[in-house]
């Protein structure tokens, strides 16, 4: 597939998912997955600013523990923090040790094999609400066209968060952000329960939540809520046909 047709297919797929009552975490996970293909990076993830100004992890192309930890560190330091503070894109930042700017983030990213990092701001009417974070395992630079594509996907992520359940009356930006952040916590709680009940790891637990929500046409967060509230047994979740990448 050419670059253009891949991008068109991605945008059509995303638009197709922005239907009524879509699940924001589900769409952002899909967006992160497609980012990896369309921009030719090895991992992608979305972080959102909480009401207190801290950054919280929302979704990524890989739900492995080690990648989650890399996002967790960015509550304190890293490209997302800098991108949010300055409202500017960070492109082709090489990860070299020692790194005085990001003394915790860079060594951990390098342990995972990442050589460079990029971060695109998610902007809304002059304020930056979050960031799209991209990682590459090989040096080799994003060119101007890559950056345009990545920024477009970051803008789609912003729209996804804002349009999330906007059919409900009187939803404000604060409410949208709060709902997205709460969704992520519910999913983590459910992952813990599923992992313990079934003996599977956290990645598989997430894949099961996603498979069940897709097969039954239910929102990801709604499935996770049912698990946490005890109305859906972890053993009754659908198991995906193919196991996710690790």
């Amino acid at each position: 597939m050419t670059r253009e047709s891949l991008l068109v297919a991605t945008l059509v797929e995303l638009a197709d998912n922005l239907v009524e009552n879509f699940d924001v975490i589900d769409v952002l996970t899909l967006l992160s997955d497609r980012c990896v293909e369309a921009v030719d990076v090895d991992a992608a993830g979305v972080m959102l600013k909480s009401p207190g100004g801290e950054l919280q992890y929302l979704a990524s192309s890989s739900d492995t523990m080690r990648v989650l930890e890399l996002f967790q560190i960015q509550a304190d330091e890293g490209p997302c923090v800098d991108c949010l503070r300055d409202g500017l894109a960070i492109v082709n930042r090489e990860l070299v040790e020692p790194d005085e700017r990001w003394p915790r983030f860079t060594p951990r990213a390098r342990e995972l094999g990442f050589q460079s990092v990029h971060c695109l701001p998610m902007r809304l009417r002059g304020q930056t609400i979050g960031a799209l974070n991209l990682f590459r395992t090989e040096l080799g630079f994003l060119d101007d066209e890559d950056v345009v594509v990545a920024q477009a996907l970051a803008d789609v992520a912003t729209i996804a968060i804002l349009q999330h359940q906007s059919s409900l009356a009187a939803t404000t930006l604060n409410e949208q952000l709060n709902r997205a952040l709460t969704s992520r916590i519910i999913i983590e709680q459910a992952k813990g329960m599923i992992s313990e009940s079934t003996g599977r790891n956290m990645d598989d637990a997430f894949a099961m939540l996603r498979a069940h929500s897709r097969n039954h046409n239910l929102g990801l967060t709604s499935v996770a809520t049912s698990v946490v509230e005890g109305t859906l047994n972890a053993h009754d979740l659908d198991v995906p046909k193919t196991t996710p990448r690790h």
Binding site: Q72, D76, Q189, G192, M193, E196, V228, A234
Partner: peptide, 23 residues
């Protein structure tokens, strides 16, 4: 502590099952 730490929420989910209690 951080306001959001995915590990705390995952661990709470695991403990709910271990302790037969809610999250």
């Amino acid at each position: 502590e951080a306001t959001f730490d995915f590990a705390i929420h995952q661990a709470a989910g695991m403990l709910a099952v271990q302790g037969s209690t809610d999250v």
